[in-house]
Write a protein that binds this DNA or RNA. Structure first.
Length: 584
DNA sequence: GCCGTTTTCGGCCCGACTGTTTTCAGTCG
């Protein structure tokens, strides 16, 4: 069984145990183990084989045995037993805001509620208010919560989150008395998708800022409005979709603690607090306070001082997932993460020769304005007729055009001739080798037949990236975040093959893709695979999506040296020349 | 169920807010 599925099963087991009223720490152990599985440093099967799985924090003797059983047999009697004891619709109730395991248990026992439909019917019939511990207000909130579930798609993409939060941040910073303000939460950690928006500010008098915030014209509904925080719903990009935005205000000497706290992740915060306790301090969102002597506090002006007080190097937000950052920060082995300014150019960009909006000249000009030294054009290949994929004749025409443009640039900037060449169903490529040999680089991507079996798809991609003319693999799983699932593929096998054949793997930086993801990029680097960050731009504006790719690279612990497109133009050109002749 | 610089038992992160309650449980982040 695949790792993500195993993680999901452990997570569900934890949840079912919660609903059954089990010891909360036992439930948490299941959730913790599920989280640990999601960011494993290597392939699970490999880690079972070499014994390293036993060393993963949060996986003890019992859960280790369960994981091995799931991985090898695909079954777990303990899970099947829990499932049999729980109505299948019960866990869905947890998604209703304000409804947790205890309320579910109570409602299930009192009213035999087994599903969202049951819950709605009971609330509409006024049954819920009669249950002990519930009242009219709770009943109304449950009905509203179900409605909320139906109008929010849940999470949103980073580009949408940024567009929504930017004016809020600007507004808060402009308020009288505001000293500092930052976006925190998952957006600051650059998570793939965002649940809600968190903004923090410091001020001597936060109250009026909340008053002004809840009356902003874009606010659709005020969820809460107190003296330390306010929550509102903002209209999302999709019709009838709403996104929660929380604003919090603290005194300026609390700002560092609050910023760290509200940035998360939850697992990282728990790790920090545990660490604080071990050093005799209690950490909350306001201060570091002595456990024995509450008058003893450690003031911190910024997060760097907070980490220092904990005996740690500064941990960048992208690494705060409790995935090894504490150990690394303690022994001084945190990587110096890549930054946007390290990028010298990029590949895999489309022009109006295929399905892009801009001409070659416009794309080149756009890249130069962003300070890039080169741009790799990568229009679609002939099979992708829908996207005006280039025929071999048009490829030759485009090469002539690029040669002419490069002559004009006079060595100050260069367009690389490339193609986003389709990987055909059998793993062969959409252009013959003699044509491929004429490109400066080739990115190979799957655009068809997504429904293959995992074995077939894996073999298909491995065959393609084994072709010595292929420089890099494009969007490795084909996923579209929040809208299309990845195709079935064994990424660890693909990574092995990429390492063997010296084929790079792309971080497709489009906020709709972010593919490969950070967990696998981290593994790929460990295996010696070079990563390249490409925007898959279909317009000049699309070039700026590179920043999302840098976010993925940072979450993958990558440094400047791990990423191909950080070298100067001459070096990039030289390395592409060498790779063109790569043999096996 | 996990784990150990109070180490094999007895802890396990912390505070705000809400609603149902006269002192607190549940949920959320």
């Amino acid at each position: 069984m695949e790792t993500p599925r195993i993680a999901q099963i452990l997570d569900d087991m934890g949840t079912i145990l919660e609903v059954q009223g089990e010891n909360p720490f036992r439930c948490r152990a299941y959730h913790n183990a599920a989280q640990a599985l999601q960011s494993l440093p290597s392939d699970l099967t490999e880690m079972i084989a070499d014994g390293s799985l036993t060393e993963v924090p949060g996986i003890g003797e019992t859960l280790y045995a369960k994981i091995v059983q799931l991985a090898t047999t695909g079954r777990l009697p303990a899970y099947e037993k829990l499932r049999a004891e729980t109505p299948p619709g019960l866990l869905a109730l947890l998604r209703v805001p304000g409804v947790g395991p205890k309320k579910i248990k109570a409602l299930h026992e009192a009213l035999d509620i087994q599903s969202l439909a049951d819950l709605r019917a009971a609330a509409q019939a006024g049954q819920i208010a009669k249950v002990k511990g519930f009242g009219a207000k709770t009943e109304a909130n449950i009905l509203e919560g179900i409605g909320f579930l139906e109008t929010t798609g849940g999470r949103i993409l980073q580009n949408e989150a940024l567009a929504l939060v930017a004016p809020i941040l600007e507004f808060v910073r402009a308020q009288k008395g505001v000293i500092r303000a930052e976006v925190c939460g998952s957006l600051r950690r650059r998570a793939e998708t965002i649940g809600d928006l968190d903004v923090l500010f410091s001020s001597k008098e936060p109250g009026p800022v909340f008053d002004a915030f809840v009356t902003l014209p874009q606010v659709a509904k005020v969820l809460g409005h107190g003296t330390t925080k306010a929550s509102v719903l903002l209209p999302g990009f999709k019709t009838d979709q709403f996104v929660q935005c929380d604003l919090r205000g603290v005194a300026d000497d609390q700002f560092a603690f609050a910023l760290h706290y509200f940035t998360g992740s939850k697992a990282h915060n728990i790790g920090m607090r545990r660490r604080a306790l071990a050093r005799g301090y209690s950490l909350n969102e306001y201060a570091l306070t002595g456990v024995k002597d509450e008058s003893k506090t450690l003031p911190c002006r910024d997060e760097a001082e907070l980490f220092e007080a904990m005996g740690l190097e500064y941990i960048p937000p992208e690494l705060r997932e409790d995935a090894g950052e504490f150990e690394a920060a303690e022994n001084g082995s945190l990587p110096k993460l890549i930054e946007y300014s390290d990028l010298t150019g990029t590949f895999h960009c489309h022009s109006d020769w295929s399905d892009g909006e801009a001409t070659l000249e416009e794309m080149a000009e756009g890249a130069r304005e962003l300070g890039m030294q080169y741009l790799g054009i990568g229009d679609h290949s002939r099979s992708l007729a829908m996207a005006r994929g280039l025929t071999i004749d048009r490829v030759h025409d485009q090469w002539a055009k690029i040669d002419a443009l490069n002559a004009k640039f006079g060595g100050q900037f260069r367009l690389f001739k490339g193609t986003e060449c389709d990987i055909l169903g059998d793993g062969s490529l959409d252009f013959p080798d003699d044509v491929l040999a004429g490109f400066d680089y080739v990115v190979a991507s799957v655009h068809s037949r997504f429904k293959m079996s995992r074995d077939e798809m894996t073999a298909r991609i491995i065959r393609a990236i084994s072709n010595p003319h292929v420089t890099m693999l494009g969007h490795a799983t084909g996923r579209l975040l929040l809208s299309r699932a990845p195709y079935e593929v064994d990424l660890d096998a693909v990574i092995e093959a990429a390492a063997k054949h010296r084929t790079m793997i792309e971080i497709n930086a489009s906020p709709y893709r972010l593919d490969m993801d950070s967990v696998h990029c981290r593994r790929a680097r460990k295996k010696g695979v070079t990563i390249v960050i490409n925007p898959d731009a279909h317009s000049v504006a699309g070039l700026k999506d590179l920043s999302y790719g840098v976010g993925v690279a940072r979450r993958a612990w990558l440094t400047r040296d791990d990423v191909f497109n950080t070298a100067p133009l001459a070096e990039v050109a030289r390395r592409l020349e060498i790779l063109k002749g790569k043999g096996d």
